[in-house]
Write a protein that binds this DNA or RNA. Structure first.
Length: 459
RNA sequence: GGCUAGUUGGCAGAGUGGUUAUGCAGCGGCCUGCAAAGCCGUGUACGCCGGUUCGACUCCGGCACUAGCCUCCA
């Protein structure tokens, strides 16, 4: 199986060939833990989980690193605003992060380093950069000397002359070049900081990823992933630091970036305030619906978030789980070749999902004797996307925690009403039977009378 | 000003130098006490203007529009 990936570096769709045949390395930028994550943060979590699953099918060993940023200006500001210690704040939001993504069905990365655990190697990298003439000190800061790197801007395809310095943020006077960025900044009295050769301070934002990738995966990694908005300056600066600290050896060979999520056509971001928190979405929707909704659009493209995309995902999953109610367990199968092929072609999830629909349709239309085979194929193929791993009846009867109020009916009440309705039907008292159907419908319960009795599910 | 991505049927969304994407919704039928689900059938599309070609939604050029980046961001 050959995987092709869109590579931001160069802009083409390249065949993926790992540096070492036996060991693939992937680093993905994880959350900064100063707040709950929004649905836009969830997209790379799901997209790179999918890539991780695919790589694991193709290569013997895959090492996936996803960091947690637990030191940063926004964290310090948030801790001050909430009047709690930094460590307490980051512990709280780290725990919330894991709670929030659990329903998305993502595999745990192999390594999840936290920035604060890597201060020593960060200082070492800064020293190497200073020694190599790629950094300088000014007013207590250590800054990366951008003009010292000839290829700077190759990822985001900009040259230094074309940048509009200070377009959005004022340029500090101590910078030699407007594009120079902070490697180490001084900590004010009472602020979080670590001792360093340049005084007490803390690392710049970009440094941690360079260092943690280097420590765990080596100087040159295969895949570096993240959201599009990290291309510049974050990833550009990571390249600059790592390449210059590693004697010019390349940092990452394939750069993979997911598109952002929009709301009403506008980018969702914490700064715009139009974000949808993942935990709020999950109060009303099954996590698997969120996962499928996120995979319903090719990962590179913008995805306009709405109840519509969630509803579309829900209907597809409902259809598939209804079919799987009849699946016999234990029928093993490999994923459908066309599904695998679609995924290998730059993670073409819409095409893979279309194929799942075709498999499902074939199962519905097949004679009963052939059904098990189709359903096993459906389940195995969906598993390649991290889908349909739940027990069908439980999934179909799932209700969001937020719906557990007085209007909702419990399973026992529903079963009792169904028994009452079936007694009415046996007595041909159809008006009474229909009254119960309507009552259940109002509670979101759908009844289906089949040859083997009455089946129910929640919608 | 520079750079990036995009524009496909009522909606979502792939792909392709000539032949059904797929799903949802719609319409007709089968099935059903009523329904639901499912099945069968069915309509609708490639932003605009040029060019290349036997043939362009697809390739090339230009234009328009949308979104984003140019040191907070997934």
């Amino acid at each position: 199986m050959k995987i092709r990936l869109s590579n931001t570096l160069g802009g083409g769709k390249d065949e993926f060939v790992p540096l070492r045949e036996d060991r693939v390395t992937m680093y993905v930028c994880g959350p900064t833990v100063y707040n709950y994550i929004h649905i836009g943060n969830a997209r790379p979590i799901v997209v790179f989980d999918l890539l991780y699953r695919l790589l694991k099918r193709c290569y013997r060993m895959v090492v996936y690193v996803r960091n947690i940023t637990d030191v940063d200006d926004k964290i310090i500001a948030a801790a001050a605003a909430e009047q709690v210690a930094i460590g307490e704040l980051t512990r709280r939001y780290t725990a919330a992060f894991y709670d929030d993504i659990a329903p998305l069905g993502v595999l745990a990365p192999d390594i999840e380093p936290r920035a604060t655990g890597y201060i020593r190697p960060m200082i070492k990298m800064i020293q190497r950069l200073l020694g190599g003439g790629h950094a300088y000190q000014a007013e207590g800061h250590v800054l990366f000397d951008v003009p010292s790197m000839p290829d700077y801007g190759q990822l985001s395809r900009r040259d230094l002359a074309g940048l509009q310095p200070g377009a959005r943020v004022e340029v500090e006077a101590y910078k030699r070049h407007p594009s120079d960025f902070v490697l180490w900044k001084p900590a004010a009295a009472g602020e979080t900081g670590w001792e360093s050769p340049w005084g007490r301070g803390r690392p710049g934002w970009h440094l941690e990823c360079s260092v943690m990738a280097g420590v765990h995966l080596g100087e040159t990694i295969d895949i570096h992933g993240g959201g599009r908005d990290l291309v510049f300056p974050h990833h550009e600066n990571e390249i600059a630091q790592s390449t210059c600290a590693h004697g010019g050896r390349p940092f990452a060979r394939y750069w993979v970036h997911n598109g952002y999520i929009t709301v009403d056509g506008e980018k969702m971001s914490k700064s715009l305030g139009n974000f949808r928190m993942l935990r709020d979405v999950l109060k009303k929707h099954h996590g698997e619906c969120v996962r499928l909704a996120l995979l319903g659009v090719h990962y590179k493209k913008p995805l306009d978030w709405s109840d519509g995309v969630l509803e579309q995902a829900r209907r597809a999953l409902e259809k598939w789980y209804r079919l799987l109610l009849d699946a016999r367990p234990g029928v093993a199968a490999d994923a459908d070749p066309q599904v695998t092929e679609a995924l290998c072609d730059d993670l073409n999830t819409p095409q893979a999902i279309a194929r799942l629909h075709e498999i499902a349709h074939a199962a519905s239309a097949a004679p009963a004797a052939d059904r098990a085979r189709h359903l096993a194929l459906l389940r195995a193929s969906a598993a390649a996307l991290g889908l349909l791993g739940h027990e069908p009846q439980a999934w179909l009867r799932w209700r969001p925690a937020a719906a557990a109020d007085d209007a909702a009916l419990g399973d026992d009440e529903i079963e009792a009403l169904i028994a009452e309705r079936n007694r009415a039907r046996d007595g041909r008292d159809y008006p009474a039977a229909d009254r119960i159907r309507r009552r259940l419908a109002q509670a979101g319960v759908v009844l289906e009378d089949g040859a083997e009795g009455t089946r129910w599910l929640r919608q």
